[in-house]
């Protein structure tokens, strides 16, 4: 039997905290403790100053669509199609891959302002997704 749930991320020291923040309703960004650079996806060392010390900041959740694709086929269990995947340029300056919800595929466009909401699956798994800014 196919598992009807979305694929879950493996959780390790380099990425588990991000999902923990999502479970707490927050969109996290890693911040280098050495040079304060924000980075995503996270890495255990800063490529600029080589510090392995970092903390996290909570993103405002505001951003714009940098690029997108609409997935229609094949359809995997655990996901709802058509599935709009977006690259979001966050207000904080980092970029994130996520999903656009509450939007028809024909209405997604480059530069569309979006805002983060937390989506909760029936099994309780939470992940940050986006909706058009200002939409109900």
């Amino acid at each position: 039997m196919t598992d009807p749930r979305r694929i879950k991320p493996p959780m390790g020291p380099d990425n588990g905290w991000w999902w923990d923040m999502a479970a707490a309703g927050k969109l996290g960004i890693q911040r280098c403790a050495g040079c304060q650079t924000l980075r995503h996806p996270p890495t255990p060392m800063c490529g600029d100053c080589h510090s392995t010390q970092w903390d996290t900041v909570e993103a405002s959740g505001a951003g714009t669509v940098c690029s997108y694709t609409v997935l229609t086929h094949p359809q995997f269990p655990g996901y709802q199609y058509p599935l709009i995947i977006i690259l979001v340029d966050l207000a904080e300056g980092t970029r994130l891959t996520s999903q656009l919800v509450d939007c028809e595929p024909e209405n997604v466009e480059f530069g569309l302002p979006v805002e983060m909401i937390i989506q909760e699956d029936p099994d309780g798994f939470k992940l940050p997704v986006f909706k058009p800014a200002g939409a109900a």
Partner: peptide
């Protein structure tokens, strides 16, 4: 696997 996991939970599988 951590790399792919920024995509697979969102449905980017192929």
């Amino acid at each position: 696997l951590v790399h792919w996991s920024w995509y697979t939970p969102y449905g980017m599988l192929i």
